[in-house]
Design a protein around this nucleic acid. Sequence first.
DNA 1: GACCAGTGCTTCGAACTCGAAGCACTGCGG
DNA 2: CCGCAGTGCTTCGAGTTCGAAGCACTGGTC
Lengths: 167, 167
Amino acid sequence: MPDPPHAVDPVQLGAYFALIEVSGLLRHAIEQQLREAGDLTFVQFQVLMRLDQAAEGSRRMTELADAIVHSRSGLTYQAGRLEKAGLITRTPSPDDERGVTVTITDAGRALIARVLPGHEEVVGRMLFEPLSREDSQKLSDLLLPVRDHMRAAPPRSAAPRRRGAPG
Amino acid sequence: MPDPPHAVDPVQLGAYFALIEVSGLLRHAIEQQLREAGDLTFVQFQVLMRLDQAAEGSRRMTELADAIVHSRSGLTYQAGRLEKAGLITRTPSPDDERGVTVTITDAGRALIARVLPGHEEVVGRMLFEPLSREDSQKLSDLLLPVRDHMRAAPPRSAAPRRRGAPG
DNA sequence: GACCAGTGCTTCGAACTCGAAGCACTGCGG
DNA sequence: CCGCAGTGCTTCGAGTTCGAAGCACTGGTC
């Protein structure tokens, strides 16, 4: 019989396993560094990074949750912690009363600036040391389309809430 | 001044972010499928997979924890769940009374066989659909050395326990 | 203007995670 | 043989995660 539409061959299986392992190991190393350098979790760091990059230093909650691939309730929890630590503020969104706009504070930007060098050092040493400049480019060229492909698929977290039976 | 030893250029930053996003999105999609197909978490699935692949269907606890990049205490917890579900057994290791050998049961193998097709379908669709066969090969060629490089670095989980002040 | 499905965020409870501390055993030095 | 640092796993407590349910508001229809 013919192969199923998306069968996974041994090479792909190896790539898949390596991807999972690499991201796990990398994440673990990063968490160590962030904890020591600024008492931040990786999720918190990612939130601050996204805000730091954003126009006005602001984003909506849902936007952030999607960007860092985290549940909405989990983001609410972490936003609470970050707000308590004075690293972000939460204000009602001007154009939509339901929405909450999260904004990074000066203290938040300062903390990012403080931990970023060590962060980059870890990423450089763990992830890019065995890769040439060309390799890095190739890796980026491979992963960006995959990311876009995954993002294009309807995210489960945004699935419509079912009221009755779905079928 | 010269660049620091492991500075991260914009291309690398993009690759790094894409890697984190891709692994997060992939993991999320996989968790959905595993939950629906066999009421397994991704960690549990990985444990069973590693055991299924292993000689005799057996591995030591520490080996497993390292392989799937999970804390030892977390693995103890999950091993408890899997044992209760009849998917693995835990026995004292013959050559080292301290050690615990984990073995997959027939039920465990059956469960893996049951969820694997759907799992591969998800991985194929999410991760490999936008990649040619050649791309997949390239991705594997890039990630495997990175994995080996990360593994070569002393894993934090295996760091010697400090008894007094470290320095 | 009143309805009402849809959306944005938070609350809630249960489950899972981690590191530190603890216990049991190993294997080397004397 | 005994002591003792080192290792393998589990226990423990605190913190974090998720999805489901709940609340508040929006934007369409009539």
